[in-house]
């Protein structure tokens, strides 16, 4: 059999402040499944300083890790610098499949890489499979999540961004060995874009929360938010918010759940006084258990909830809080 010109799977391992984004491990998890079927290698590329623990990518299943190392060039989200370096690597190693996490950065970077390579790109996949010809079937929602399209690419590399929290993380094997290849960057500065500052955020990461307790505009003031905060705290979760509540200024944008905010997939989502606009539902409908409290029995949120409670949230939430406290006392 003649050797394939394009061979192997390359995943982009995203890092910030030397911490590897967990979507990278999910890509390795899915990548392993695909590479076993195709019978090809599974490799990762990471861009950043020397100090990054790139061995972790090997422990998580990468056969080769290409570490494009520079002490400063990759410490800011500069798509141009990242793209040129990744394109240069892809041109030299010619992977058949290239996967990026569909994070805000991945979704901004991957199209530039695809344009440079003049290849196709499928956005925001929720599943990946192999076809009988060992090509990639990329499955993605479209039409505001109403359909799932099955897409194939006929140019190599087959490129896709993959939604965060869709796949299981690759299991860690501390003894696993692989090859670490250090690479000099081909571009380290960009005169066209200057990144002036990172605007501080309060560090909440609602996408990683196991529990999200979300509030809508029935919350009229910051004080009203305190019982939401308390419930989230008791359950070890984060506070979410509808777009409308964020617009009132009571809570910051990092908390916004929805199509244009954060898509979340917690084990439990508690919607408090959220009617459930399509925009909001698109961001949370995949939660494990959905509990909704609303005084309007016709609220659309009830159509997708496991537990629908019609009533006054100012009465019911304190009841839930006290029940949880009682439960703790009896443990």
């Amino acid at each position: 059999m003649t050797e394939k010109i394009y061979n192997g799977i390359l995943i982009f391992a995203e890092q910030k402040n030397n911490a590897i984004h967990r979507v990278s491990y999910e890509l390795l998890g899915k990548g392993k499944e695909l590479s076993d079927k195709i019978d090809c290698s599974l490799n990762a590329v990471i861009l950043g300083p020397e100090e990054i623990n790139v061995q972790e990518l090997i422990c998580r299943g990468a056969d080769k890790v290409y570490h494009i190392a520079d002490s400063t060039a990759f410490n800011k989200p500069d798509e141009l610098i990242y793209a040129e370096n990744i394109v240069s690597l892809i041109k030299s190693i010619k992977p058949e499949i290239c996967l990026f996490g569909a994070t805000t950065f991945g979704r901004s970077l991957a199209p530039r890489v695809a344009a440079s390579l003049e290849t196709g790109l499928t956005a925001d996949c929720t599943d990946l499979k192999t076809d009988s010809d060992m090509k990639l079937i990329q499955i993605r929602p479209a039409f505001s999540e109403n359909i799932l399209a099955h897409i194939k690419s006929d140019i190599y590399p087959q490129m896709a961004t993959v939604r965060y929290k869709e796949f299981e993380e690759a299991k860690r094997d501390a003894d696993r060995t692989g090859e670490l290849i250090k690479i000099e960057p081909v571009k380290t500065n960009n005169d066209l874009i200057e990144i002036l500052e990172e605007i501080s955020n309060d560090g909440i990461n609602i996408q990683d929360a196991k529990v999200v307790v979300a509030a809508g505009v029935s919350v009229k003031s910051a004080e009203d938010l305190s019982m939401i905060n308390e419930l989230a705290y008791l359950l070890g979760g984060e506070v979410g918010a509808s777009r409308a509540l964020v617009e009132t200024g009571i809570i910051s944008k990092d908390h916004q759940v929805g199509y244009s905010g954060n898509r979340v997939k917690p084990a439990v989502y508690i919607a408090c006084g959220i009617s459930g606009a399509p925009q909001h539902l698109a961001g949370m409908k995949e939660a494990g258990v959905i509990i909704a409290i609303n005084n309007d029995p016709s609220a659309p949120i009830f159509d997708i909830a496991d537990y629908s409670i019609v009533g006054d949230m100012y009465k019911i939430i304190p009841e839930i809080i006290s029940a949880i406290r009682n439960n703790e006392l009896t443990i």
Partner: peptide, 27 residues
Amino acid sequence: PTKVKKIEVPQQSMREGKLYKENDEKA
């Protein structure tokens, strides 16, 4: 290069769908 091979309209996921009205205690 990318071609849609198939379109699927997924079924809405089945939820427990328990409704509580003036029954806070049970809820």
